[in-house]
Design a protein around this nucleic acid. Structure first.
Length: 597
RNA sequence: GCGCCCGUAGCUCAGCUGGAUAGAGUACUGCCCUCCGAAGGCAGGGGUCAGAGGUUCGAAUCCUCUCGGGCGCGCCA
C-alpha cells in the first residue's frame, strides 16, 4: 500500500524535470510515513521540505507543484498540503477494500515477500557452551534469534540458522573429568570432587548412562597420585583475596585431575568420555530448543575447525596478507589497526592457538561457505569481541559491514514482586526447561521478545502465567479465539455466511472504528518490514496488541451476526482479515493462535 | 582509567532511523453483560522525554559535555 503511494510520488517527480537535480538520491518511499493523526490522511510525505533547500523554493509552494503533477488514480481520495509543507494523502475506500481482499486471498502468505536468492544470511544464535542445560538467559537468545529469523524469512531472504558448539578446549576437559569422577563414584571410587568441576545433577545422569567399554575403574590413590586432594575443596570465602586464591587453587586442582584422567584412561579413553558427555548435553539442548519451537539448520562444531584445518587456513590468509606478527614468542593480530583496544594473540608461545583464532577461523569459514551477511546474536557481555572479530574479517579482505552483531541484554526473573536469585548453585530456578514448564512455551516466546533486545528484561512469572487481560499474550490469543468462536457460532445458528458476498459489500463498513481497523490491517506488511530491518520483534508485538485492541473495541460495540446479510457478510470479512493478520503475526513470533481457550 | 549499552507517566516499557498536540500497559477512580467469548469494552487524572549546549524549517530521536545505572576490558573459553 505504501509502495503504491510512493510510486505516485516518484511519477510526479519524474514529470518535473526542474526538480530532478534536487531530488537525486531521495527515494520517494523514504519520504512517506503513516500519519499519527487521521485528520492528516493516511500517508504523509515530507519530500517538499527535503527538496526546499536544494531547489531553493518555499516548501509549501513545492508541495503544491508536486501535488499538481501527481498522476490520476482511484486509490487516492484527496491530497492536501499541510503544516510546514507536508503532502498528506488520503486513500480512497477502494484502496482499503482491495487490501482486505488481498488479506483474504493470500491468507498465511499475507505480509510475506517473494523469495529472493540473496543476500544469503547466516544467523548464529544461542551457541551456549555444551557444559549444562540452557538457562533462562539463553531462552531469550533462542526466542529472539528464532523470531528475527522468521522475520527475515518473511522478507524473502534465505536464512540459515546456526548453533556454534564450543566443544573444544579446557571447559570440555573439565566436563569430561567431572563425568568420569561421577562415574568412578558410582563404581565405588570416591574422590574429592573438584570445586571447579561441573556439580549439577545432570553430570551424574550422564555418568550413569555412559558407555564405559574399555575404561578401567581406577583406585582413588591412583587418581590422586601426586595431587593435593584438598586443593579443590571450598574454603570460607571471606575476602576477595581468599576467593581469588581459592579460585586459583580450584582451577589448579581440576587441571591436575584432567591430566591424571588422561594418564589413566589414555587420550583415547578420556576422549570417549568427553565426547559422550558433550554429545549428551548437546542433544539435550537440541531437544529443549525444539520443544521451544527453535530449530537450527546446522550445529557447527568448534572441534571441526581444527580437524578440517580451517584455523590454519585462516591464519595462512592473514599471514599472506601480512596481518600477523611475532612478539615474545607468540603470534599476534594487530587488532588495534581495526579499532580494538589492544592487539590480540592468535598463537600462544607454547604453540597453542587461542580462542580468538578459532573465532576468526569460524567467521572466515562462514564467508567461505557462501554466506553474504553474517548476523551474530550475542550476550551483552560479549560486546568486547565485536571489534576484533570484525577486524579479523577485514584483515582477510572482507567487508567488515558484512558482520552484524545484535547484543541481547540480561533477563531478571520476578515472582511475587521479588527478584529471583538465578545462580546455578542456589538451584532455585534457572533452566529454560523449568521456565517453559511454569509459564508455557507461548508466554515464554512472547515475553522474551516483548522488549527491545538492548533493554534489560524483567520477566514477571506471575503476569506471564495469569490468564487475564493483564497478560498481553492471552489478550492477543483471545482476540483470535474470539473470532474463531464467532465464526463457529454463525455456523451453529445456521447463518449462511458468504465471504465472497462480503467482499463486494465492503462499502457498507462506514463506521470510524471499521475504517480504523482497515487502516491498521493495511499496515501489517510495513510492520513486518520494519521489524525485520531493525531486528526488532517488539515492533510486531506492539502492533498486534494495537490491532487486537481495535478489534475488541469495535466488536464490543457491534455484535453483528444478526445484521442484514450484506452488512453482516462485510463485517465477517473484516473479522476474518483481523484473524488472518493476528495468526500470521503470532506465527512469526512462534506463538500459537488457538481456536478456543 | 578506557570502551559499549541504557536513562521517556507512580511502576514496566513503545516511540516507525528527524516530523505535526510525546503514546500503550499497569496501578488508581467510576461505569457497561436477559445478548454472537466480561479472558472484553468505555471514561478520567498522571510528563522539565536525566541535565546543559549544538546541528535545522522541525530533536525524545543526530552531535558534544555532565550526572546516574548496567556490562566488558587475559598468551581463559
Amino acid at each position: 500500500m505504501k509502495l503504491t503511494v510512493a510510486q505516485l510520488v516518484s511519477d510526479a517527480l519524474a514529470a518535473l524535470p526542474d526538480l530532478a537535480e534536487a531530488a537525486a538520491g531521495i527515494k520517494a518511499v523514504d519520504t512517506l510515513e503513516r500519519t499519527r493523526d487521521p485528520s492528516h490522511g493516511d500517508f504523509a510525505s515530507n519530500i517538499a521540505m527535503r527538496l526546499a533547500k536544494p531547489a531553493r523554493k518555499n516548501p509549501r509552494e513545492l508541495a503544491a507543484i508536486i501535488v499538481a503533477a501527481l498522476p490520476e488514480t482511484d486509490a487516492i481520495a484527496k491530497t492536501d498540503v499541510a503544516g510546514p509543507g507536508f503532502i498528506n494523502f488520503t486513500l480512497s475506500p477502494t484502496a482499503f477494500h482491495a487490501e482486505i481482499e488481498t488479506i483474504l486471498d493470500r491468507g498465511h502468505e499475507y505480509g510475506r515477500r517473494p523469495h529472493r536468492n540473496s543476500p544469503k544470511i547466516l544467523l548464529e544464535f544461542v551457541s551456549a557452551n555444551p557444559t549444562g542445560p540452557l538457562h533462562v538467559g539463553h531462552g531469550r537468545h533462542a526466542a529472539y534469534g528464532a523470531t528475527v529469523g522468521n522475520l527475515l524469512e518473511a522478507m524473502g531472504y534465505p536464512v540459515s540458522r546456526e548453533y556454534y558448539v564450543n566443544d573444544a578446549g579446557r571447559q570440555m576437559d573439565i566436563l569430561g573429568v567431572s563425568v568420569w569422577l561421577r562415574w568412578l563414584e558410582a563404581q565405588g571410587t570416591a574422590v574429592p570432587f573438584p570445586g571447579a568441576g561441573y556439580r549439577g545433577d545432570y553430570i551424574r545422569d550422564i555418568a550413569a548412562n555412559i558407555d564405559a567399554t574399555g575404561i578401567a575403574v581406577s583406585e582413588a590413590d591412583a587418581v590422586l597420585d601426586g595431587v593435593a586432594a584438598d586443593g579443590g575443596k571450598d574454603k570460607p570465602d571471606d575476602t576477595a583475596e581468599v576467593r581469588a586464591a581459592n579460585k586459583a587453587a580450584r582451577e589448579t586442582y581440576v587441571g591436575v585431575l584432567v591430566d591424571r584422567a588422561k594418564a589413566l584412561l589414555g587420550d583415547d579413553g578420556f576422549d570417549r568420555v568427553r565426547q559422550q558427555s558433550l554429545e549428551a548435553i548437546r542433544a539435550d539442548i537440541e531437544d529443549d530448543l525444539a520443544e521451544f519451537g527453535v530449530v537450527f539448520d546446522t550445529w557447527y562444531s568448534e572441534q571441526s575447525l581444527t580437524k578440517t584445518g580451517r584455523i590454519d587456513d585462516a591464519l595462512a590468509v592473514l599471514r599472506d596478507r601480512h596481518m600477523l606478527y611475532e612478539r615474545d614468542g607468540a603470534e599476534w593480530f594487530p587488532a588495534t589497526n581495526f579499532g580494538d583496544e589492544k592487539d590480540r594473540v592468535v598463537v600462544r608461545d607454547n604453540g597453542v592457538k587461542t580462542y580468538f583464532a578459532s573465532d576468526i577461523a569460524y567467521h572466515f569459514d562462514k564467508r567461505e561457505r557462501g554466506f553474504d551477511h553474517l548476523i551474530d546474536i550475542l550476550g551483552a557481555d560479549h560486546h568486547g569481541y565485536v571489534a576484533r572479530v570484525r577486524g579479523g574479517l577485514k584483515a582477510m579482505g572482507y567487508d567488515g559491514d558484512d558482520l552484524e552483531v545484535e547484543l541481547v541484554q540480561f533477563v531478571t526473573l520476578y515472582r511475587g514482586g521479588e527478584k529471583m536469585q538465578m545462580s546455578t548453585r542456589s538451584g532455585e530456578f534457572d533452566t529454560l526447561r523449568q521456565l517453559r514448564a511454569e509459564v508455557g512455551n507461548d508466554a515464554a516466546r512472547f515475553y522474551y521478545v516483548m522488549r527491545s533486545n538492548d533493554q534489560h528484561l524483567d520477566f514477571d512469572l506471575d503476569v506471564a502465567k495469569s490468564q487475564t487481560k493483564d497478560n498481553p499474550v492471552y489478550y492477543l490469543q483471545y482476540a483470535h479465539a474470539r473470532i474463531q468462536s464467532m465464526l463457529r457460532k454463525a455456523e451453529e445458528d445456521g447463518i449462511s455466511v458468504s465471504l465472497d458476498n462480503g467482499l463486494t459489500q465492503l462499502g457498507l463498513l462506514e463506521l470510524a472504528k471499521e475504517q480504523a481497523l482497515m487502516r491498521e490491517l493495511s499496515r501489517y506488511p510495513e510492520i513486518i518490514e520494519l521489524a525485520a530491518n531493525n531486528r526488532a520483534p517488539q515492533t510486531l508485538v506492539h502492533y498486534l496488541r494495537d490491532l487486537a485492541s481495535e478489534f475488541h473495541s469495535w466488536y464490543n460495540d457491534h455484535r453483528f451476526l444478526k445484521d442484514p446479510d450484506d452488512l453482516r457478510d462485510a463485517r465477517l470479512v473484516l473479522s476474518v482479515a483481523v484473524r488472518n493478520v493476528i495468526a500470521n503475526g503470532l506465527g512469526i513470533l512462534g506463538v500459537s493462535a488457538p481456536e478456543s481457550m
